[in-house]
């Protein structure tokens, strides 16, 4: 093939259709940011629904939030922030070409992620036991009972607030979508760890690790919004 290549330095990890490394890096970075923008709108639809119903049904929101376990939510928030820190450490290690440390920090991140999942599973389990899952096992009486139990002492709740099922529907969809993003993150992390172990990255070339970091931060930030919105309102 008489396919002309500009004779700037051609690094092995440069893909053939890019003219040079700088173009490749910048392109990927722009791509990642566009992907983030897309993600924001994806969650944006949910946040829009959230806002509207919260204004429409403040009582349901108060009652729903009161049944959440704020302590577990708090722990999870801290756990995720921790995992953000550990992924920053992984990126840092990549910059210093320390392969072992990269793997170590990825492992820490995944471990923290698993803790998050564990706690989330406990919370989902409790909701299932209290028959608070709309559509699947929702039970009005039981729900009322649970809400009464969790209501602050000075408030008496006599009937289920209107829109309470919407609150739980949104709770499950929003946290579920967030969890799905974490699952995808896990998949990506394993893939990157495998590549790292095989020595595909070095101090000069570690974009996947860096972009994974961005993605993971994004997922954390979503949670940092979800936590006050769903637990603390």
């Amino acid at each position: 093939m008489s396919h002309a290549v500009t004779d700037t330095e051609h690094k092995p990890y440069q893909q053939h259709h890019f003219e040079n490394m700088e173009q490749q890096t910048q392109s990927t970075l722009l791509g990642i940011w566009l992907f983030m923008a897309q993600e924001i709108l994806f969650f944006g639809g949910l946040f829009a629904a959230y806002t509207i119903y919260r204004i429409l049904y403040p009582a349901a929101w108060a009652a729903g939030a009161s049944t959440q376990n704020v302590f577990l939510g708090m722990v999870n928030t801290i756990v995720l922030i921790g995992s953000s820190v550990s992924i920053v450490m992984a990126v840092h290690s990549a910059r210093h070409d320390d392969r072992k440390a990269i793997l170590k920090w990825f492992a820490v991140t995944l471990l923290l992620g698993s803790v998050f999942f564990g706690i989330k599973a406990i919370e989902y389990g409790t909701k299932w036991d209290h028959q608070l899952v709309p559509g699947l096992n929702w039970n009005n009486e039981h729900a009322l009972h649970t809400i009464q139990e969790h209501a602050p002492k000075n408030v008496e709740i006599l009937e289920l607030p209107k829109g309470i099922q919407i609150y739980y529907s949104l709770y499950f969809v929003m946290t579920g979508m967030h969890a799905l993003h974490m699952v995808i993150g896990f998949g990506l992390a394993f893939w990157i760890m495998a590549k790292t172990a095989r020595g595909r990255f070095n101090a000069e070339y570690y974009p996947h690790i860096e972009y994974f970091g961005l993605y993971w931060h994004f997922v954390d930030i979503v949670w940092i919004f979800l936590f006050p919105l769903l637990y603390l309102v």
């Binding site: 897309q38 709108l41 944006g44 629904a49 559509g135 919407i166």
Partner: peptide, 29 residues
Amino acid sequence: TPVIAITLLLVVFERALGFGIFDPQKGGD
């Protein structure tokens, strides 16, 4: 496009699982 993606996903959830985000009987709009 992401907005319609999540919207149709909500419809699918509502239909498959019985979530009530757009169902007036559950307070949805």
